[in-house]
Design a protein around this nucleic acid. Sequence first.
DNA 1: TATTGTTATACTCTATAACTATA
DNA 2: TATAGTTATAGAGTATAACAATA
Lengths: 151, 151
Amino acid sequence: MSTSDADGVLAEQLLRLTRRLHRIQRQQMEPIGITPAQSRLLRTVSHYDLHDEPPPRMADLARRLDVVPRAVTTLVDGLEASGRVRRVPDPTNRRVIRIELTDTGRATLRALRSARRDAAEDILAPLTAEQREVLGGLLSALVDGMPERRC
Amino acid sequence: MSTSDADGVLAEQLLRLTRRLHRIQRQQMEPIGITPAQSRLLRTVSHYDLHDEPPPRMADLARRLDVVPRAVTTLVDGLEASGRVRRVPDPTNRRVIRIELTDTGRATLRALRSARRDAAEDILAPLTAEQREVLGGLLSALVDGMPERRC
DNA sequence: TATTGTTATACTCTATAACTATA
DNA sequence: TATAGTTATAGAGTATAACAATA
């Protein structure tokens, strides 16, 4: 392995780690009856809710989740079917649909938080608190440096 | 966002980052005619090749890739169809199939290396060389701490 | 009876393209 | 004509379960 490929190796470790994180998350979320991608969307919706901002549009969620709008449709379909969010047409622009959190959705978020923490703890076990802080800082720098998805 | 959920946030950043890495990789590998998962498998096979070890069995690859054996079948199918690996029955145990790298496979690996590096560089751009080294160390600690998949 | 890999099947996640209804 | 979200479709990735061949 040549030294100049260090970045490539780093990318591979990232992918491998995330695959495991994904599997653990899926297992822990299964009893709650939600998939990881649905969980991410639900958390994104809750940010608006917690900050007393108007509920997000489908397009907002696509941008925040860094996926194509079509992908949001399916996720919201699933969350709406389980009563965790509500599709509410925007009265000022009838093309727009806003996604509102329901009480069921809030309850799910509470259950989810501990599951997510357990999954993270499982993955991060080899690191000390200080190391986690450093890792968090580096990841924040990377995520903040990400270009916004054009929708 | 409560402080005690820092690990959860960290996990989310990891997932978000990896989703982008995945997308970039897929785009860069498309002209080469290979998918990211096939590429990972090919690289794993090449480790055995480079270290003059006997070619890996399907089960070896499943363990190294941290996936179920069934998943390896599909990946090898694709790589064999494009002439990058060969399925060779083990003469000493006829249940076992060993996966050998072909010259075409080696050529693909060369093309892949630069693509992978470009994808990594794209993601890691916000970090200095020192920060990348720190990140690499932390990820190595995490990956090394991962339990082996039982197959 | 245990191991190795496969066939059969299904589900999650995401993408592109074409369409509908608004604006 | 441009925007918001959808239907239609496809493909990558992975999983579980049942099975055949071999040990």
